[in-house]
Design a protein around this nucleic acid. Structure first.
Lengths: 81, 81, 81, 81
DNA sequence: GTGGTCTAGACCACT
DNA sequence: GTGGTCTAGACCACC
């Protein structure tokens, strides 16, 4: 449950828009546990942001324990939810 | 299977982990001058990395003058330390 | 299935046994045009030969224009049969 | 797509083809001292090789002291020729 | 957006 | 059966 409504009145960093969208899609089950998220370039293009921004969103997801990243392979939704 | 093939948060890149381990073992005398190091596939399996990563560590050892590589034979600890 | 029985009386180089078997399988359609042949280690194990022997058979197939090899990818049955 | 990504029968490995071409262009003055070489992905596409192969050629140029690489910026022809 | 590192797998050249 | 090179793609650290 997103306790983070994207309030257009409160300035919100672009990476949070990506983050929120990914969190929502994971919760909706679009990306099931174990599934691979889109690559950084794909996320960047899809959300119309710089690659750094996509990376930052993924890092946030990682630090929140929602996904796991494996070098050279990709970023995956954690199974141990 | 290695539980965590490589931790992106680790302060040292995977190839440095392999490098450090080999340097330590050579210094400890596990591999004496003239001795043959394990083959690249063996190192890869032992450290849970791709062969290219094992190769990267061996290249570093070679450039540091610690080992010598002979085509089709293997990598050996240098005698002229 | 092998229409080229390996006659123990006529001395036949080991690589030719592999070669004959592969030619037969390609003609039988086991490997269709564009299909990937087994890798060198796989052929070596399957026929109980050294890897060099498997390689030599593949090279022969290549020189006969039956297959094409792409570096880093594999060996494939030619489409322009 | 490149018609023949790399010919295994070629006397020179693919990375040497890239290396030779770059050396020639630098000597011809196409890239003057201080100039930036094309990026790795660009070289890879131009020569029809994998990025690692383009990198291999650049590494050779670097070790020969012909170019310098700056992190996150690019590879440049050395001024102190 | 670059160069740096990594995965996983293939074939090549040589001993 | 080793080290050498290659493919095709990923993420990382830095500018």
């Amino acid at each position: 449950m997103p306790e983070r409504p994207s309030d257009p009145h409160s300035p919100r960093a672009p990476y949070m828009r990506v983050l929120d969208a990914l969190v929502a899609e994971i919760e909706e089950g679009k990306y099931e546990p174990g599934a691979k998220l889109p690559s950084e370039p794909e996320l960047a293009e899809r959300f119309g942001v710089a690659r750094m921004t996509a990376r930052r969103a993924l890092r946030e997801l990682r630090e929140q324990g929602i996904v796991e990243t494996e070098w050279g392979k990709g970023t995956f939704v954690k199974r141990s939810d």
